[in-house]
């Protein structure tokens, strides 16, 4: 049974962008912006606040900078998803899927009422 408390949307998107690659802050912001068709903007304050809080919560962790990362403008800090983070992501996806199923059953959504 999936959890019914939801993950904050921007936490969810940050986890999603780290699901298949370790990224630095700006790259996360750009990935989310691109993926959501420019709908979700992670403003710097929100992004770095979330990264800190998520690191504190053990969902993500700072990882070594890849050797091929460009270094101009100072060293960038890269983040990766933790096991805990992956579990939170999976549970959120299941929760959303369950809602989707429920909605379809009630005839809501595209093509529905």
């Amino acid at each position: 049974m999936p959890a019914y408390t939801s993950l904050k949307p921007h936490w969810f998107h940050i986890l999603l962008s780290l699901a298949d690659a370790n990224l630095h802050g700006t790259a996360i912001m750009e990935e989310v912006l691109e993926r959501t068709d420019r709908e979700l903007r992670l403003w710097p304050g929100k992004l770095y606040g979330a990264l800190r809080e998520m690191a504190d919560a053990g969902l993500i962790t700072e990882v070594d900078t890849p050797d091929d990362a460009p270094t101009e403008g100072g060293k960038r800090r890269f983040y990766g998803i933790t096991g805990e983070g992956r579990r939170a992501l999976t549970s959120e996806v299941e929760r959303l899927a369950a809602i989707l199923q429920l909605a379809h059953a009630k005839g809501a959504g595209p093509g529905g009422v």
């Binding site: 630095h24 304050g45 929100k46 606040g49 990264l51 060293k75 800090r77």
Partner: peptide, 24 residues
């Protein structure tokens, strides 16, 4: 909205070698 100043400063001044910020 973030009122992030204080938190950021706490982080910056927190004695960590790298701040969360990419540019100190």
């Amino acid at each position: 909205v973030r009122g992030g100043g204080s938190r950021l400063r706490a982080t910056i001044g927190g004695g960590r070698e790298h701040s969360l910020d990419e540019d100190g």
